Amino acid sequence: RKEMTAACTPRRRIINLTSVLSLQEEINEQGHEVLREMLHNHSFVGCVNPQWALAQHQTKLYLLNTTKLSEELFYQILIYDFANFGVLRLSEPAPLFDLAMLALDSPESGWTEEDGPKEGLAEYIVEFLKKKAEMLADYFSLEIDEEGNLIGLPLLIDNYVPPLEGLPIFILRLATEVNWDEEKECFESLSKECAMFYSIRKQYISEESTLSGQQSEVPGSIPNSWKWTVEHIVYKALRSHILPPKHFTEDGNILQLANLPDLYKVFERC
């Protein structure tokens, strides 16, 4: 597991931080080997919608929660590849102030007048994250320049770009939802926020969305749709870069829909 690298990086740093090793061990302890084997050997059937997909393993048909699986995938990559990410360069710098204002204007932020003026909160978020810029760049390849612009994001899987519609809320939550006081809790909560931002979430995906850094293989055609990215990038990574937690067998994120021999018997009677 320590050699797990989802995106190509030129050289690998050895990380011996106790906090990170502890988080890696927790993933191992909570892992479910049968689910790992199923995901490793599954045959992708198709997307139901951005949140759900169908896959077959041996004779069984499964309904998989793409949102939760991708979130767990990105969390584990962030923990196992800690401080070893490439950088996704933004085509132009994104001012943190503008991103924070967009987030505060969104109902998702939960902002009320009692929280104070949005401009003041946005300025605080910019200054707060600028103070964390060195650590964010060093460990997470999340790059913020001296003017308070976001200029780079971590490359977690080759050819995958997170849904940038979720970027404003991500920046807001970096400042408000991460435990910045304790090292282990900081790395864990920061990785979880980043994983949620990178995950496939239906509120940020339309039929026209593209999450891939590449064009489709047909010359002159439109960019790959999110469905292509889910199948050929995300579920491909799920084959080798995730140890599913045991609770996925109990919380409805992986559901067995049918045993195909039983279905064949039904059709034979028709």
Results as ranks from 00 to 15, higher is better:
79 I>S: 12
68 K>N: 07
168 P>G: 03
140 F>G: 01
10 P>E: 11
118 K>A: 15
225 S>E: 12
62 Y>H: 06
18 T>I: 15
60 K>Y: 11
35 L>R: 13
38 M>D: 04
181 D>H: 02
37 E>S: 09
52 W>F: 06
47 C>E: 06
71 E>Y: 04
196 M>I: 07
139 Y>E: 09
212 S>G: 04
151 I>N: 06
57 H>I: 05
152 G>A: 03
235 Y>F: 08
237 A>T: 11
222 I>N: 09
193 E>M: 05
59 T>D: 08
121 L>H: 01
231 E>F: 03
179 N>M: 08
139 Y>Q: 03
239 R>M: 12
240 S>E: 08
90 L>S: 01
127 E>R: 02
184 K>F: 06
30 Q>D: 10
141 S>P: 15
47 C>S: 05
183 E>F: 04
52 W>V: 04
216 S>E: 08
162 P>M: 01
4 M>F: 12
29 E>I: 10
41 N>D: 04
102 L>R: 02
223 P>H: 09
223 P>N: 06
10 P>A: 09
50 P>E: 06
226 W>L: 05
102 L>K: 02
110 G>S: 01
259 N>Q: 05
247 H>G: 05
159 N>R: 05
217 E>C: 07
51 Q>C: 06
204 Y>W: 07
57 H>Y: 09
214 Q>I: 11
60 K>I: 09
98 D>L: 10
215 Q>I: 08
241 H>C: 11
199 S>T: 07
48 V>P: 09
114 E>Q: 07
51 Q>V: 07
170 F>G: 00
216 S>L: 08
249 T>Y: 06
162 P>G: 01
169 I>H: 13
1 R>D: 15
26 E>D: 11
175 A>N: 15
62 Y>V: 15
210 T>R: 06
262 D>L: 13
6 A>N: 13
158 D>A: 08
214 Q>C: 07
196 M>H: 05
61 L>E: 01
251 D>Y: 12
143 E>H: 09
193 E>P: 00
46 G>D: 02
101 M>C: 15
24 Q>G: 11
35 L>W: 09
110 G>V: 02
205 I>N: 07
232 H>Y: 12
106 S>A: 07
189 S>N: 04
229 T>Q: 05
240 S>N: 06
88 L>V: 10
174 L>F: 00
30 Q>E: 12
250 E>P: 08
109 S>Y: 14
103 A>G: 15
119 E>D: 11
39 L>Q: 11
31 G>M: 11
11 R>F: 14
29 E>M: 13
225 S>R: 09
15 I>E: 09
178 V>D: 00
122 A>I: 09
114 E>W: 15
113 E>D: 13
159 N>E: 11
3 E>P: 13
76 Q>K: 08
224 N>D: 10
128 F>T: 01
178 V>Q: 00
88 L>K: 07
25 E>G: 04
46 G>Y: 01
55 A>W: 13
8 C>M: 09
32 H>G: 05
139 Y>K: 03
231 E>L: 01
224 N>L: 06
34 V>C: 11
39 L>Y: 05
8 C>H: 08
4 M>N: 12
219 P>L: 09
198 Y>D: 00
33 E>A: 11
116 G>C: 15
98 D>W: 15
189 S>W: 03
3 E>C: 11
243 L>E: 09
189 S>D: 04
126 V>K: 01
93 P>N: 05
233 I>F: 14
95 P>D: 10
48 V>I: 09
251 D>K: 05
183 E>V: 02
246 K>S: 11
